[in-house]
Design a protein around this nucleic acid. Sequence first.
DNA 1: GTTAGCACTCACCGGGGTCGAGTGCTAACT
DNA 2: AGTTAGCACTCGACCCCGGTGAGTGCTAAC
Lengths: 348, 348
Amino acid sequence: MGIMDERKFRILQAIIDDYILTAVPVGSRTISKKYDMGLSSATIRNEMSDLEELGYLDQPHVSAGRIPSAKAYRLYVDQLLQAGLLHSDSEDAVRAHFRGRRRQMEDVIDHAAQVLSNLTHYTAVVLPPTGPQPRIRTVQLVPVNDGAALVVIVTDSGIVRDTVIRVSDQLDSDTLYAISKTLTAELRGRTLQEAVELLPALTGRLKENERLLQGLNAFLNESSGVSRPRVAIGGRSNILSYPEYNDMEKARSFLTLMETRDKLASIIAQQGEMAFTVRIGPETGVPEMADCSIVTATYSTRSGQQGTIGVIGPTRMQYSRVLSILNTMGHQLTELFAENNLQEPEQK
Amino acid sequence: MGIMDERKFRILQAIIDDYILTAVPVGSRTISKKYDMGLSSATIRNEMSDLEELGYLDQPHVSAGRIPSAKAYRLYVDQLLQAGLLHSDSEDAVRAHFRGRRRQMEDVIDHAAQVLSNLTHYTAVVLPPTGPQPRIRTVQLVPVNDGAALVVIVTDSGIVRDTVIRVSDQLDSDTLYAISKTLTAELRGRTLQEAVELLPALTGRLKENERLLQGLNAFLNESSGVSRPRVAIGGRSNILSYPEYNDMEKARSFLTLMETRDKLASIIAQQGEMAFTVRIGPETGVPEMADCSIVTATYSTRSGQQGTIGVIGPTRMQYSRVLSILNTMGHQLTELFAENNLQEPEQK
DNA sequence: GTTAGCACTCACCGGGGTCGAGTGCTAACT
DNA sequence: AGTTAGCACTCGACCCCGGTGAGTGCTAAC
């Protein structure tokens, strides 16, 4: 009796499909009529009763229909993932949106989040690529002012970091250039981390420029540390269109969460090497998202860094559509970063 | 009968105060009791009737209290502004939030928006400074890759713009430096706009580097154009706490508006030279904000550029509090940019 | 000019009744 | 044994309704 057979599965699937579409508890009659399996409502009822016992269905109250549990969704997407991604029809839509010229990293990220939310009608999150410590390729000092210079560090992943530091007044453009060459020679090929450690060793060579080294040190320290990823978010307010978020309190706490970028980033961040992650309801581990699902995919850059794109929506998400969109979007981004062999700096 | 006298004004003030606090239509009895002016409810009623005729009060339905009209708020804040800003007690709170070290421009902007929304409990918007065309101080090319270089342009307002452009393969670091010096010599003191026009004249001098000039040209063109200001927003979801936005549809359209940065920026952007702007309800000129008010203030940088900070909330906003907070916040930002005489680059 | 009094209006609230979708169970049918 | 028709039952959604109370406008008296 209690075992999950082929027919139960088909019924469950129908229930999930219907619920995803309507957000209304679905009854036995609906299934037997709209999804013509040659069974009467009574039979469906029996099966549904079994499915509830197995934990795949919940009943909000005695005389409403059933709604799928988190466990049901889990089963659903697992099957979906196994079967391979279905209709990749959205491919064109995604492609079309990337026609425009690729701009700076941040713009690409923002744009991607925008597109993703437009296509899915859910909230979209895009994390910039992170990965193996980038290695320094060039260090250059640009005069800004008397007593101030801009440090530009170019790394092999193309990411440019810069900041203004104070230097002693007497340094003119040529001197700065000479120092730049020394620094480049010494630090090339190192990670930022290593550079921090190496810096004291250079104090001898450049001891007249104590101030400069001091500033440089502070900058490197900061950059090498937790380089807070500037996550891009799109379609924050999309969630409000879904009846499960008609409750103001819920909506508020969700949107507040969306505002704390750091927290959001850590929630989204991919851990494993998997192409896709689907976290359903409680699996998100975030109380505010008790009835949300998070679907993420990865993309990568030429230099092997990995970024994450994700979609957040109600548990009754159109998983198949979302997965397919995420898939092509991931490919597009990967392509974008590949063809574009000189990688743009990450800022405005 | 129809003229606005001192007593009417006091009554109107009481009504506004009460409504701002409670968001509930306020009746004659409430006024005569809570705000002890030596008048009976009947008298208040008569006055209220007059005030309604004058257009300062609205009546949602016959037997509810009155609520202040946009015209009433207008009068209220005008009087507030004339009287000078009241209790600047929030000064400390603002100060406290700026203790931390000032970081890059974008961070400052973000942080300011955050603080502003926390203090006011409304939605806050901060526009980065814009102003007279910045003038070029230095142009420098930094090698990134074979065939690619980073262009860094430092302007007198300290803003640094950069991008990666393609150059011919044979250019090594020293050659790039030489070209940089030429470019700097030629372009120093020009605005970006002027630089675009001057560039063709340089083609003779640097004709071997057609590619470089081409890239530089594109970059300058882009930068000198509409440099879309990266507006920072804080407390987007705060608006949801106010009963006037209990309607989901309204909330949605508001939040959607908040997501289109460009539009928002153009709404917020200060036109005049005034220290404060208060736009109430219809005065905003944005249908989505029919029952919002926008209060803005300006701050300025050492080099005379001006930025805008603003707060968006329901029409029954705590104007006095908000004005006072905006005031000190503006001062703080101005101070911050003044002491900090080397201005930080505007990017990450 | 102010106030007490009064009739009137109308949103809001809670109770009761109806409706209908949906269930669980039983008995009959294949 | 599995499937189905039938039926009683449950319970939320909706509507109607009268009571309540805050608030008004008007009038007459102070």
